[in-house]
Amino acid sequence: MSEVSFPPLLSGHAVTGPEDPFDTACKKAIIGCDAGLVTYNLAPDSLRAALVFAPEVPLRQAMAMLPTCGVGLQNALGALAPPEVAVHLEWQGQIRVNGARCGGLRCAASSTDPDTIPDWLVVGLNIPLWPASQDSGDTPDETALYAEGCSDVEAPALLESWARHSLHWITRWEDGDTKALHTEWRGIAHGTGEDTRQAGLSGTFLGIDENFGMLLRAGDTTHLIPLTSLLETP
């Protein structure tokens, strides 16, 4: 496996084979690992990684780490991929490259109570490098990074860049610069103003609130769907 280096405050733990770094990160967080641990699996056809956090704010606010890591990924690809490659983020965590879905982010925490400060929170990243099938016509809305003109983007370099850019935005968020993060995310958000379905509700995706909750307009009612609704059970 290629050597991967991380910026200060972050440390790496490589896994191999079928081991899912997201599951590994959750297990280590439950045991009590340090915040800033990056678990990763660099397979020939995919990049999978996860980042462990130790929030100091209630889960409702801490969930901002999910879109923050998405912005970090978009910035990383912006630095490494050809300039014509477009990267956007869906509210649910999916990543779109040149309009098609290309992996995504997921999140788990020690608690699902929005008003409780969780002991830990983990954000996972999965990016397919090569398509699962040679016939892309079978899944026209699904793609892989190397199928979109990014074959020169090496997985270790992308992982390092994702960690650096995510840490940059995490630091700005911790320093109170939430406006910049919101502006950055809105500029690369996919589906704003379009009809969608989330949490059993159908409507128009109007945007986000201060905690990145989805504002969904259904008829005369605007629903707020919190990011905590996306939490997975570790």
Rank of each mutant, 00 (worst) to 15 (best):
Ile117Cys: 07
Leu129Glu: 02
Ala79Gln: 09
Tyr146Cys: 05
Ser111His: 10
His168Lys: 12
Glu148Tyr: 03
Glu174Val: 08
Trp162Gln: 07
His165Arg: 02
Ala76Trp: 09
Leu125Glu: 04
Leu121Lys: 04
Asp177Lys: 00
Asp135Phe: 00
Ile117Asp: 11
Pro82Lys: 09
Cys69Asp: 11
Asp113Lys: 04
Ala100Asn: 02
Asp119Ser: 14
Ala147His: 06
Gln74Asp: 09
Leu129Ala: 00
Gly72Arg: 10
Ala79Arg: 06
Ser111Tyr: 01
Ile127Glu: 05
Leu77Ala: 04
Asn75Glu: 15
Ala157Trp: 01
Ala100Val: 08
Gly137Ile: 13
Arg106Lys: 15
Leu145Asn: 07
Asp115Leu: 14
Lys179Pro: 08
Trp162Lys: 01
Leu66Cys: 07
Leu105Thr: 03
Arg101Leu: 14
Cys69Met: 10
Ala86Val: 13
Asn98Thr: 06
Arg172Glu: 14
Trp91Val: 04
Asp115Glu: 15
Glu148Ala: 08
Ala155Lys: 11
Leu121Glu: 10
Ala100Pro: 00
Gly176Leu: 02
Ala157Asn: 10
Val123His: 07
Asp152Ala: 11
Ala109Pro: 11
Thr171Tyr: 05
Val153Arg: 01
Gly93Ile: 12
Val123Ser: 10
Val122Tyr: 01
Ala108Gln: 01
Thr68Asn: 04
Trp162Tyr: 05
Arg164Val: 13
Thr139His: 11
Glu148Trp: 09
Ala100His: 14
Glu84Tyr: 06
Leu125Phe: 12
Asn98Asp: 14
Val97Asp: 04
Lys179Val: 15
Trp120Glu: 03
Asn75Tyr: 14
Ala79Asp: 05
Val71Leu: 04
Thr178Glu: 13
Ser133Gln: 13
Ala144Arg: 06
Gly78Lys: 13
Lys179Asp: 14
Ala155Gln: 01
Ala132Asp: 13
Thr178Met: 07
Thr143Gly: 02
Leu80Gly: 06
Ser136Phe: 08
Asp119Val: 14
Cys102Leu: 07
Leu105Trp: 01
Gly99His: 03
Thr68Phe: 05
Leu66Trp: 03
Tyr146Asn: 00
Val97Arg: 12
Leu73Gln: 06
Lys179Phe: 15
Leu158Asp: 06
Leu77Glu: 03
Leu129Gly: 01
